[in-house]
Nucleic acid binder design. Sequence first.
DNA 1: GATGAATGAGGATTCATTCAT
DNA 2: TATGAATGAATCCTCATTCAT
Lengths: 203, 203, 203, 203
Amino acid sequence: MNERTPKKGLRPRKAPSQPRSEETVAAIIEAAAQVLEAEGFDGFNTNAVAARAGVSIGSLYQYFPGKDALTVALIRREMKRFYDDVAIALAMHNGEDALTYLLGAAVRQQLQRPRLARLLDIEEGRPALRDEVAKPELEQMTTEIIKRAIPQHASPEVAAADLFAMVRGIVDAAGERGETDMAYLEYRVRAAVFGYLANTGTA
Amino acid sequence: MNERTPKKGLRPRKAPSQPRSEETVAAIIEAAAQVLEAEGFDGFNTNAVAARAGVSIGSLYQYFPGKDALTVALIRREMKRFYDDVAIALAMHNGEDALTYLLGAAVRQQLQRPRLARLLDIEEGRPALRDEVAKPELEQMTTEIIKRAIPQHASPEVAAADLFAMVRGIVDAAGERGETDMAYLEYRVRAAVFGYLANTGTA
Amino acid sequence: MNERTPKKGLRPRKAPSQPRSEETVAAIIEAAAQVLEAEGFDGFNTNAVAARAGVSIGSLYQYFPGKDALTVALIRREMKRFYDDVAIALAMHNGEDALTYLLGAAVRQQLQRPRLARLLDIEEGRPALRDEVAKPELEQMTTEIIKRAIPQHASPEVAAADLFAMVRGIVDAAGERGETDMAYLEYRVRAAVFGYLANTGTA
Amino acid sequence: MNERTPKKGLRPRKAPSQPRSEETVAAIIEAAAQVLEAEGFDGFNTNAVAARAGVSIGSLYQYFPGKDALTVALIRREMKRFYDDVAIALAMHNGEDALTYLLGAAVRQQLQRPRLARLLDIEEGRPALRDEVAKPELEQMTTEIIKRAIPQHASPEVAAADLFAMVRGIVDAAGERGETDMAYLEYRVRAAVFGYLANTGTA
DNA sequence: GATGAATGAGGATTCATTCAT
DNA sequence: TATGAATGAATCCTCATTCAT
């Protein structure tokens, strides 16, 4: 499957109606997570995922039209948790508190399963998946939070993108090095983020 | 080639002594860069590289014991330029100037061939390559520069790692979005880095 | 590979330059013929063809970008012989002789390897291959021969198409029934063709 | 399912006694026709047929022991209409009229759903089905008609086979080219058939 | 009877690597 | 040394068929 190949289905093949199916789908996605975590990209193949999920390869393809669709589903599953956190942050009155909460959530999530998070970050960037996993609302919501925290900021959209990128960079690298002290990491992330905002805020 | 596979040679097979060989090796490495840039991981295969380099696949294997060795060579080539910049920075007297210079160099390099840079950043993280492309001196030198810029900083090693990671994060993301305004990007990177240092410096 | 799938390469992958390659290509095509003949469509898979040719599956794909390309090559090989016969017929002065010669050639060819001929006739009709195996010159040349044999014929193009179709129909069916008496078959084919022309000629 | 595989049931699994079953069976067969027509062999799979029929795949297998049995049923359904026409022809007193009527019926039927007809003609030839869809009576009846039309014909059995084959050849090809003018096509078919008979009749 | 989830053998294709020439 | 033909393990994916519910 080449990069320019006209897309193929990346959405789940069928909404699993029976409860049995739902379990199967969840099992496959979690198996994908585990395989990716344990074997890296090299070992991340559909047969391994099916085997780890305890289902046949045929079942996997009943629910996902292809490997990429499975990856997308996994990314979405992980993204969802963050979404919820963003919503919580948005509900806060104080902008700075909201941003702080968000950073904590990001650190927590990324350090929960660091390798998985890092590998999925990479997958997200693949041209074949990019459209499917784009998160416009997420960025909009983050922009909104920044506006509240630093009302006078000149370009909150750019700031949102930069902050996403730098947080991801710092936390992924920390996870890769095996860091586990979340408090310390959170402290540094806050330092980076608020430092960035302080220095770019008053354009 | 599995992640746990007992390593294989990742060093160039022979120090090309003859000038013709040197050219060949350079041509292969540049071809690898171009293929990676143009086709992404999906199209990055040894046959394509050999073809683009205008040499036979057999010749490629004469100079590189395997695909990973080729990747490593490419990473090293890109790293070298940065090395030189770090050396220049180290020669500067004023610590802040040195750091500023370094950030500029990083931005410049990363935005020169943004996609290549980003893909190589990913490759660097692969377990199979990590040992071969580790850059202890680089980190040490950067740490040294930070020490000079912020003498009282509590943990310059951690700072060096974080700064590497955040700069890479910001610049890779900017490249991916197609940004080309280096001055603006540099400004933001400086904001992030000096903001981080300001907030973590006085432990 | 669906019927509407945007085409894929159907031309041989590389013009085999070395003599060794040429042999390999020929061996693969003949193996394809034999497998198709012996096993029918059901057994006609690339692995079987490679095995029968005594080459690895990889070699097959070095020369043919896909299964269909192999089929096309086989069809072309068979077509070529007929082409030559049409050329010979075209060189004849007497139109009826030319047509008679052509019919004989068609019968001979089709009865040489009857099952292969019949299965390839079917393959030719597959939408995925149709464009690649179209034979406009062949039809043009046949039309020309008909014009010479029956100068006053109202619509020689239609006649050419009909004659192709009926000859193919009769001979394929005869082959399927295991007929081997070429003279008798040829006699009947001539009866059909000249009967058709006699009855449609004077529009 | 290989060509030599010891046969499997090709007859419908149960004579559907209840009216509801009969409808279901008919729906499945018509769905098979539509799928074959619309997607060609590539898309002709049991799941697609069941879906198009609006029944579950399980139900399909309740009525047909396998895919081939479904194909056979479809072929039989199409054959039946022709059977009736042959019977009508047989009831005619004048042999030539009978033959003419038969040809018209053949053209009409084949041009009704040309693609379906052509694909079923191919399926009929598959060794796995051949025995199940042989039509000895049909050929016998046709032979009878020929005998009446051309009493002195030397080998009416051979003629019957040839005529079947050439009519099928001409009409299938016409359908493939998208012809729709039935009168013109019928005229040419008559020309071919009566021409053939005229030229072979007086052995 | 009907359903549709599950199965897994089978088949197409890729690509890193070797080795005879 | 260079070449490029050959290799085959690995991987993706399909679809006829079964069977528990």
